[in-house]
Design a protein around this nucleic acid. Sequence first.
DNA 1: ATGATTATTCGAAAAAATCTGATAAATATT
DNA 2: AATATTTATCAGATTTTTTCGAATAATCAT
Lengths: 297, 297
Amino acid sequence: MLSDLNYKHLHYFWAVARAGSVTAAARQLGMTAQTVSGQISRLEQHIGRALFTQQGRGLVLTEAGRMALGYADRIFQLGEELQEMLADEQLDHTLRLSSGISDVLPKSIAYRLLQPALALPQRVRLHCTEGAFDQLLHELSSHSLDLVLADRPAPAAAQQTLQSYLLARCPVMIFATPALAERYQSGFPHSLQRAPLLLPSRDNVLRGQLEHWLDERGIRPDIVGEFKDGALLHTFGEQGAGLFPAPAFAASDITGSGKLCLLGLVEGVEEQYYAIANRRKLQHTAVQAIIQHAESE
Amino acid sequence: MLSDLNYKHLHYFWAVARAGSVTAAARQLGMTAQTVSGQISRLEQHIGRALFTQQGRGLVLTEAGRMALGYADRIFQLGEELQEMLADEQLDHTLRLSSGISDVLPKSIAYRLLQPALALPQRVRLHCTEGAFDQLLHELSSHSLDLVLADRPAPAAAQQTLQSYLLARCPVMIFATPALAERYQSGFPHSLQRAPLLLPSRDNVLRGQLEHWLDERGIRPDIVGEFKDGALLHTFGEQGAGLFPAPAFAASDITGSGKLCLLGLVEGVEEQYYAIANRRKLQHTAVQAIIQHAESE
DNA sequence: ATGATTATTCGAAAAAATCTGATAAATATT
DNA sequence: AATATTTATCAGATTTTTTCGAATAATCAT
């Protein structure tokens, strides 16, 4: 890494660029012009290029200075926001956890996975966003999210900054209404030949695994629907549109009402649930709780 | 404004939060743990709230600390980008001007307005983006643009940070193909009653002015087309789709080829061209040139 | 219990920032 | 044209901040 930038110097540079002159900036800062001028010289010396050039008895930004000004603007705007945020009372009372939930994730699972955070002794306020995997990862990187729940780990390219934790894995089973179940029950899984089947959409990792499982056994079902949203898939299944896969977790919920029956296990296929967070040593307390709870199981 | 944040302290805080402990951070920074610990205490004292709490023999972030960490991440990431940018050779050679051009602005006018920047003694590299007015203003605020050209000034709400300069004003005239001109020439402007007319779309300020001009005179033309893009409007006009308004600037270009004739002046209506930039004393050299050139006319 | 690890406190030393006084260049004023 | 004012900068003394060394208290592993 480069030797560190002196933000105090940068702040003076910023003030001068905004005020239009060393004198004016010094007046605003409550300092002498000599000091400000000197400190900026130090900055220029440190970075090895001029930020201002003298023109007449005033200063003009160099190209480097102009670019630097853009960065300085953003940096000190963030600094001011930070101070405002810190000045806000009623901050330390509740712990905030901003989590993003991948839209391919079953909602009931999301609740289970987040549960350990809510069980903490402190008051926790949960902020949930739903969205596409890539978009959520982006928000994670820009630090507007603390945690992302998804059905896959972060891509290898992001391993430098993001860390993925396998929270849970769950066998997958096929369910159906009693009418359909009766017809396709015997001889499972080969009975699925030409059976009406509902599948998750292609951006769901489970989709690939299921197709592979079917291929391996030479089963060619009649795919009557693809669903991005697991809840929607479930609803269609409940109406008898077709057989459908669901994580074993949900088995009791699904068969409990009596409207749906279990056909069988999709052997060798399991759904996986990951938590993805920024890679750092000191994790968010709530994130820690979620990961540790998963490890202990 | 609040008393200033010490970015050196914040940097230590950031290092500790990332490294996971004072000791580890100190080692990475090449300093003693005492120093780092002490400087962070100063920061906490300054902002008046704890960022870490001791847990066991380690540290845990408080809620305030967690929020601060998010800001620190962004701040120091920008700082590193700034340093990388400054380390880049071949920077001072050419002056970059990133300008956004509102999509309702005639392209030929945009060139005229930017011309003074290209006439500078320095080498200038122009980066042009086209887009909706609001979007461009947003990019201006986030400092990814130096300048926006539009047909209106920045809204009053943004007057604090943005400054608008009237670059030019230009009377508006009505043009048409010879065939149409012959028919609607005499008795202008009242001859426009039920005449086929091409107009700019509603997000163009000129549109409102033209309608007002027509209303005032009780003229109800037959509006055969609305165009967001001025060039497209011009092309349709050239093909004889209808009479069309254009800035007087372009009069000689338009009538020069002989394919189009001037019908008359739209009295009291003029198109205005504004440059909008971030409000600061030390402007971009190229922006200065553009504004000064306009003032001198 | 003992030894190792971690954060913190205190005072001295080192480094950095700031001020006072003075100089040079450019512009404005007379 | 001569003079005064404004602007940036230089040099040295002074103040403030940062840093380190030594010592202490708390926690964890063995």
